[in-house]
Design a protein around this nucleic acid. Structure first.
Lengths: 364, 364
DNA sequence: ACGACTACTGAATCTCATC
DNA sequence: GGATGAGATTCAGTAGTCG
């Protein structure tokens, strides 16, 4: 456990902190943040002087050493900020990091070495990438995001049903097709030039935050830039913390954030699956008289079982819960009894799950 | 310079060498191979069984060759084979490595450390990936390939125009959409079971070899398996060398190769093609800011519904997709939400389908 | 011949509350 | 903290059978 001074006791919510992200994160309380979104620099300093993390200059002797020293420096930087980030994450927190082939392999390996648990790598397919002008390589049409939990045991947030809804009813895949940030969304400086070289599109953050946070969650961006993370977080009713070194980016981000109008609260309520609904023991249906002890249930193949007064089933072979008996009949490892069994009304098979729906409706 | 004995002076062209790939590559003459394609073990780290919702068991990759004690062990293995591979590459040679998020970050970092020069990372988007059965993560719908030259100074082979032609006249991008290997292409053993758990599709190798080799080039595959690399190399008039440890895989590959008929020289640029109208989820319009969560849609009779952040609609009665809510309002069995709903701009009703057209235009 | 229908499959780090 | 048991969870495609 780290001793935290009083200055570390509170989170600077919905604001931008100026400074080096490692130092600033070390000053934040540990286990306090739900999600981190990071777009780190990937300048590998392949040209010019090289410096070790502590500042000394590397005396490059040949190409191999030059390259190695450069990667070593970048790795040290990566390990340092990932360690500081992991400390401020809640135990069930998660991180997203975005990068290109220049740096993402080093970041991914460092994530694994630091104890993060990779959940998916996600490909952002750009609909409108910059072409390869010289025709010497493939058009670099994507970037890679890594989604990782703080640890293997983290029970991370994943709004499966919301993302499935965003994808019109089929599971969200690990490849996302979205345009780059351009047009009105792209921030311009006073000179009309783009305010930040690598501004990310809001659509990308929308999908990240809808999928891996809930309203009210705290989202930290240690490389805030011009504040796309904060902008989308504010729109979606999440809290944000931004860390940025350059005052010019902070100024642009502050101005941008001041113009953001959050969505209505009702619109933030997102599709939920059955997992979020209250549990209803099967015995409740018997207690309430929706099913009678002695009544017969059937599965889709016509196999029958009798209901007993305590809410267990009794078939030829076995007695047990609706799940256990269903699994035993099919020789399956498990079974959802709610969708497996039906009762008979007016000669028709009616799924018992409809009775559970009835009970749940009463509970509201 | 390494002293090469006479036994190392010749290349075992168009044949499979049985043995450990590191030892075998160390026995090959240095600077003798044009391209390496490597599909190393992914180190999946699977734990228990996984079952599909209907109860069947997923046939997982649990082979001995994919088990490593730790990341350190895996890294040592990776560094060793990458070093041996780099020695046999010609100065202008290149390498392709394929992997998933389990291993690709470690492989990519090791490639960079070993002095290879990354040219592109390429995403193989699977049209038909295995779903995520438990709904706990995104569907793992892609794998990653890294294309790297032996060194920064290598003048590597890149057939820009051939790939452009394969891509119907526009530059080949870094994301490739191809189906997984199934059906008749998938090799089966005598028992009818798949001969290799991770056989790659020939279409993938086709694109790799057309793009980065010339006819007559020597292609080495240190993890030959059932020989997809050799098969496509032979079809395309390239020479191949396969290295494989398991005799069962070698037997299957030999038989497969014996059936391969090389293409006629004129027939190299074929295949590919199918391109239908891309599906656009309604949620995409929300993510991209074309419609706001909280905004109201209307049908032709003026009935209204509100948009939520995940792209679902919320009316008086019902919450669901644009199609579901439209159907419910009309009491119809189904409904095309795209033509059913309009949004309001400047007091005018505008069909949401016009926004879909806009997105589709970007996707082409 | 063709359509309807069933069965099967793919590199997968795939649960969680309660006792 | 480990064991137990409820119960939630799938997409695109191929191949084969039957009518």
């Amino acid at each position: 456990m780290t001793q935290s001074g009083p200055e570390a006791a509170t989170l600077p919510l919905d604001s931008i902190v100026r400074g080096d992200c490692i130092e600033v994160m070390e000053g934040l309380p540990e286990s306090s943040v739900d999600l981190i979104f990071a777009d780190p620099p990937y300048n590998l300093q392949l040209k010019g002087d090289l410096h070790r993390p502590e500042g000394s200059r590397v005396d490059a002797v040949d190409d191999d050493w030059d390259r190695f020293a450069s990667f070593e420096t970048y790795d040290a930087f990566t390990r340092a900020w990932l360690k500081a980030a992991r400390r401020v994450l809640k135990p069930d927190g998660a991180i997203w990091v975005i990068g290109s082939y220049h740096n993402i392999f080093r970041v991914g390996a460092s994530l694994q070495d630091a104890g993060y648990w990779i959940l998916n790598d996600v490909v952002w397919r750009k609909t409108n990438p910059m072409p390869n002008f010289r025709g010497k390589r493939l058009t670099n049409a994507h970037e890679t995001l890594i989604w990782a939990a703080k640890s293997e045991k983290s029970r991370y947030t994943f709004n499966y049903d919301a993302l499935k809804a965003l994808n019109e009813g089929t599971q969200m895949r690990s490849d996302w097709t979205l345009p780059i940030c351009s047009g009105h969304e792209r921030l311009k400086g006073a000179d009309g030039h783009k305010a930040h070289p690598t501004q990310k599109p809001q659509s990308l953050l929308h999908r990240v935050l809808v999928g891996s946070t809930d309203p009210g969650d705290v989202v930290l961006d240690p490389f805030f830039g011009t504040g796309t993370t904060g902008t989308v977080a504010k729109m979606l009713g999440r809290r944000f913390i931004g860390i940025e070194r350059e005052q010019a980016y902070i100024d642009a981000a502050e101005e941008r954030l001041s113009r953001v109008r959050p969505y209505e609260k009702a619109a933030l309520c997102v599709s939920q699956g059955k997992r979020s609904e209250p549990r209803v023991p099967f015995g409740t249906l018997v207690e309430r008289g929706l099913l009678r002890p002695g009544e017969t249930l059937v599965n889709s193949k016509g196999v029958m079982a009798k209901i007993r007064a305590d809410g267990t089933l009794c078939s030829d072979k076995l007695t047990g819960s609706i799940h256990q008996v269903g699994a035993a009949i099919d020789g399956a490892p498990s079974c959802n009894g709610w969708t497996y069994w039906s009762f008979i009304r007016d000669g028709q098979r009616v799924p018992i799950d409809s009775l559970r729906q009835q009970i749940r409706a009463e509970l509201i």
